[in-house]
Design a protein around this nucleic acid. Sequence first.
RNA 1: GCAUCGAUGGUCUAGUGGCUAUGACUUAGGCCUUCCAAGCCUACUACCCGGGUUCGAAUCCCGGUCGAUGCACCA
Length: 580
Amino acid sequence: MDKYDSVIELAKRRGFLWNSFEIYGGTAGFYDYGPLGAMLKRRIENIWRDVYVINEGYYEIESPTIGIEDVFVASGHVGGFSDPLSECAKCHEAFRADHLIRHIVSNPDTLCCDDLVRIIRENNITCPECGGKLGNVYEFNLMFRTFIGPGLKRIGYLRPETAQGMFVDFPRLLRFYREKLPFGVTQIGKAYRNEISPRQGIIRLREFTQAEAEIFIDPKDKTHPGFDIIKDYSVMLYSESAQESDKGAVEMTLENAVSEGIIAHQYLAYAIYNTQEFLLRVGVSPERLRFRQHMKDEMAHYAIDCWDAEILSGRFGWVEIVGIADRTDYDLMTHSKVSKVDLSVYMEYDEPKIVEKLSIKPDMGKIGPVFKQKARSIVEALQSLDVDELNKDEIIITVDGEDVVISPDMVEVKQVSETIRGENIVPHVIEPSFGIDRIIYSVLEHAYREEMVEEENETRIVLGLKPEIAPIQVAILPLLTRQELIEPARKIESSLRKKGVMVSYDDSGTIGRRYRRNDEIGTPYSITIDYDTLEDATVTIRDRDSMEQVRSRIDTIADTVHDLITGNIAFEDAGSPVEK
RNA sequence: GCAUCGAUGGUCUAGUGGCUAUGACUUAGGCCUUCCAAGCCUACUACCCGGGUUCGAAUCCCGGUCGAUGCACCA
């Protein structure tokens, strides 16, 4: 049993993760979050909100999980999110059908399945592996398709990423942020990809949760106002050149990484900083985290630099859990093209620019009566002339293949100076995109440990979750199943619940067994009520990781626990030490 | 999607054609019990699904589902 098996087995048994539709046999690529899993997920999402929404001020929106066809035509997912495959009838290898005929036609990726089959047949293309006959060509589009409303006319797709919902709201968002760059927007939600053959359990899902931020910035200024504060922060970077020379990741400060051109600019570096802070806060192990740069040929065609946060897992090696990309203006441009809506921002210059310009004002009172229906074309033609031609005594222009003579009094031409205060630009987008489910798996795997308890000579399983994300924050345990201990225990339980602390009350079995049960699900603290409690109104608080205890007063217990969970006080300061 | 291997209570597991399907842990109820899963009593829970062969199938055969591995795929 490797680490993955142990973690998944625990997650299943204790209500973190379950196979979906289990009573019907289950379906690959779908997982349910059980009671503890859903709680853990919510806590992680809320920390993400704390980082991006509260601290960065990137408001969260919520758009539909189903998108109309146009959205994904523009994004490129309808055309580009699928591959034509052909399979060998003999050895059953599958090949990219368009790749097989690359040397025959120049535009294989524009052909439909039927054309691809025809060309494969006509040219007697056979299986490159065994020479066998190739079967039919079929398209794999990884989007789930559906129909909106009755009939089959309006096609919809389940979104393959949450990002598009934010891009298409751009004009509204721009208005909301009072027409100024930079601004950011976030979304946490489900995305769907109909994977051909999902493996690796929760690492590759058909329905998964993304937390994405789209930060719209001025393409001419990719410095970050907060960069100075974080420039000495260091991260493990596995750059493109390090990968080429097989050197391994290198720790360096963000300032050095940017000045040496390893990270393209400050905005990406800042996004990497935020990502690392978030991942460490939810409990990803720093020794098993690195940022890997995409290779040139690996990067999406629209991105200019892209870094993945990767974690080291026992079974899968380095796994991508966050993608951080500079998507440039690609998305806004294509949406603008398909929707025919302007998605630019008017950027005012620091200093207005004064430009000399030719002003051409046709006198319509004169041109109109003379040229009648031709007048319109004549005015258009006039606009495209240069100064020399306009200043002649007779202006000759060609309209509909016919030379027309215009006298200078029909048009007023003069040199004017115009003040330009700004211009319309299409922002670039910095996108940190988090795979929440993979992060949850990383956190579980990095938190999982089996350790020897010396005195007992046995192993205990501990989920060393950070108190901030532990589903159950404190367990209330009367030492013995006796009414005089149960009563005060129940009182403490309800006082903590009122304080908003997630507690579990447990009086079944020996105290040791109950501690172990809580260790296994990552409960950071246990409160035990014993006979001393009845004497001096104190209880013990036990720390999950050290198994140490302190005695703490009941009347302040809710605040003490709250402070422990939020990290306001250290465990040693939560009460007086207990002798073992 | 293809190939190979696998699937027995919540978990791990015995059983390879024949009585009521093995055991452990867990869980629940109770007894006991003054701080780290170990005592006692009791109880619940399983042969992945569908078809076939057979007097009889958890066991053999076929198909499906799920899982592991390899190939392909992962914008």
